[in-house]
């Protein structure tokens, strides 16, 4: 079920979150929201708390202060996990000997959906086939995932995330260690998911250049939230100039 990109209701609200690993404070009083149809980039230097923030939003970590709301419910009470897709940072650093086929990985994505809707075997196969075709890896479905290239593996994880037709897709540095051309195709694919399918996307990235072409919102993080707003305003902001001065990787893009 695709959402309308014009529907601007708040899907995620992060309210005054603080978090620390032991004595090391990682996030300090961070608040932001994600609206339906957004393509939000969360950017910031290493150790700025980007991954921690996403993990808190997804309920994988508990903040010592503040709260997270997903689709109108506190994350602790949220049950509709089939509406969220997640591709973790280490997704493409999988053990190459792990005996799991592309088809099996994509089928994992349907597990949470099956709790809510009884899918027949045929419907399940059709959903998986559609997801594989959408990301262009249908020919690899019987291959062991470890035998694929980094770019192909990413597509498998995207297929796993979209097979359940999520409303929000979270990606944590999905193009680490992937060549520039594959990155370009990958972000085009995300663009299509956002604009054509109406999937809200939250993307953690180091590549500020990505921001220029694809996203409509930016959250700039360095333990505190330095900037949160539209991409157009971000390009003229102090935060952007500071990040460029800090030597962040910039990729050129066609406009």
């Amino acid at each position: 079920m695709a959402l309308s990109a014009n529907d601007s209701k708040t899907l995620i609200a992060v309210k005054d979150i603080s978090f620390s690993y032991g004595y090391a404070k990682v996030l300090k009083n961070v608040s932001l929201d994600v609206k339906s149809g957004d393509f939000l980039a969360v950017i910031g230097p290493n150790g700025s708390g980007k991954t921690t923030l996403i993990k808190i939003i997804l309920g994988l970590l508990k903040p010592y202060e503040g709260e997270v709301w997903i689709m109108g419910r506190r994350v602790e009470e949220f049950l509709e996990w089939q509406k969220l897709g997640y591709i973790p940072q280490k997704a493409t650093h999988i053990d190459s000997f792990f005996p799991v086929s592309v088809y099996e990985v994509v089928a994992m994505g349907l597990l949470s959906k099956k709790k809510f809707t009884r899918l027949t075997k045929k419907e399940e196969e059709l959903s998986i086939q559609n997801a594989l075709e959408q990301v262009g890896i249908e020919d690899f479905k019987n291959r062991r995932i470890g035998s694929l290239s980094g770019g192909q593996q990413q597509r498998v994880f995207i297929a796993r995330a979209i097979v359940k037709q999520p409303h929000i897709l979270f990606l944590d540095e999905p193009t680490t260690g992937v060549d520039a051309e594959t990155q370009e195709h990958f972000y085009d694919m995300l663009d299509a998911l956002n604009k054509k399918e109406g999937i809200t996307i939250v993307l953690i990235t180091h590549e500020i250049g990505i921001v220029n072409r694809h996203v409509n919102k930016v959250a700039c993080l360095n333990q505190r939230l330095i900037y949160h707003g539209t991409h157009a305003e971000f390009c003229h902001s102090k935060a952007f100039k500071e990040m460029i001065a800090g030597g962040h990787h910039l990729i050129s893009h066609r406009h």
């Binding site: 997804l58 996990w81 997640y86 973790p88 990985v105 994992m108 597990l111 949470s112």
Partner: peptide, 13 residues
């Protein structure tokens, strides 16, 4: 699922 990708399995509920 949890053997292959623990965090994603958690996020799946």
């Amino acid at each position: 699922y949890m053997t292959f990708d623990r965090d994603s399995a958690k996020v799946s509920g």
